[in-house]
């Protein structure tokens, strides 16, 4: 773990410190969230329903006022208008004025984002084409299907050629082709140096594109780090030998491992124990068939984080800042 110098910290695209939000008197949506997103990365915010993911994004987009928040977005305090002009946002369950056509909608939102007329005129058809909505450009939005609305929403988020893109459930309502298109688009945008922040509970999807993720549970960050960091942390090894190993049960369990017939499962990633177990098995004349290090999937991390949330301090810092 590296200590980051002060100057580097301002290099975060998103650097939120101690974000808190309580709705009404007792719905604690966020209880001191710290989230750091580096420039140019795809960041996934995971969490079960009601964890506070949308609340956090809405706070960044000034839709909701936090009770407390310090930190920056694109190097400026949250809500800075110059930076809002270069941020794209796709809200969850968005609703667009039904009387507009796709083209009109893009033009309207681009104008609100202060994109000059000639630029937005040029950009709109390109974006509509990218999301596969070219034929629907001049059809009223009231006639769009859910997935078409979502595609238009993504185009809308890109109309100001944003440096930072915040997507709340971007693949909601999309067919498999649409999902793949979105993934491709995100990677393409990343290649262009954009920072992307995705809210989702579709773990598989995030696993495919994200560089780093945070897991939000109950308004607190339970885990945060690169996919590697999170998944390597909770590895297990499976050692299989020929024949029955029951005669080793007592010694194996003394090492803290589990035994079932010809397989020994070693939780954690302590290589020393693995070697001890191998030595033990071989010393009793058994032959090792395989030693398989099993990385936990993001889902395992997620489930584990859900269980461990009570132990998490509300001020959890990302691993690389500790």
């Amino acid at each position: 773990m590296v200590h980051l110098a002060e100057t580097e910290i301002t290099n975060w695209a998103v650097d939120l410190i101690d974000a808190r939000k309580t709705y009404g008197k007792n719905i604690h949506a966020l209880r001191g969230v710290n989230i750091q997103v580096a420039r140019g990365e795809i960041f996934g915010l995971l969490g079960p329903n009601g964890a506070g993911k949308s609340t956090l994004v809405k706070i960044m987009m000034t839709v909701i006022k936090p009770d407390r928040l310090s930190g920056t977005v694109l190097g400026r305090p949250v809500g800075n208008r110059k930076k809002l002009a270069v941020t794209g946002y796709l809200p969850e369950a968005h609703r667009f004025p039904p009387y507009l056509t796709g083209n009109q909608l893009l033009d309207h939102y681009a104008a609100l984002a202060k994109v000059p007329r000639d630029v937005r005129r040029k950009r709109a058809p390109i974006l509509l084409d990218k999301v596969g909505m070219s034929q629907w450009a001049d059809t009223r939005i009231s006639k769009y299907s859910k997935g078409m609305l979502q595609r238009l929403g993504i185009a809308q988020a890109l109309i100001n050629d944003p440096e930072l893109l915040l997507l709340d459930e971007p693949t909601d309502g999309l067919d498999p082709m649409g999902r793949r298109d979105v993934r491709r688009m995100l990677l393409e945008l990343k290649d262009q140096g954009k920072t992307i922040f995705i809210n989702s509970h579709l773990l598989g999807e995030l696993e495919m594109v994200c560089d780093r993720v945070a897991i939000l549970v109950n308004g607190m960050v339970a885990r945060q780090g690169t996919l590697n960091e999170l998944t390597e942390h909770t590895a297990e090894y499976r050692i299989t030998a020929d024949g029955d190993l029951s005669d080793l049960r007592i010694q194996v369990e003394r090492l803290g491992c589990a035994l079932s017939r010809s397989m020994i499962v070693i939780a954690g990633d302590d290589r020393k124990i693995v070697n001890q177990v191998i030595d033990l098995v071989r010393s009793k004349g058994h032959e090792i068939e395989s030693v398989v290090p099993k990385r936990f999937s993001l889902e395992d991390v997620f489930v584990e984080a859900l269980g461990s949330v009570s132990e998490t301090s509300p001020m959890a810092r990302p691993p690389n800042l500790q």
């Binding site: 809405k58 987009m61 000034t62 839709v63 208008r81 110059k82 809002l84 002009a85 941020t87 946002y89 809200p91 969850e92 369950a93 968005h94 609703r95 667009f96 004025p97 939102y109 609100l112 984002a113 202060k114 809308q156």
Partner: peptide, 18 residues
């Protein structure tokens, strides 16, 4: 009311306009 409806206002408030 329609500008302020859930889902529609979000996009507008996210624009650089006070």
């Amino acid at each position: 009311p329609s500008m302020m409806s859930k889902g529609e206002i979000d996009v507008v408030l996210a624009k650089p306009i006070s």
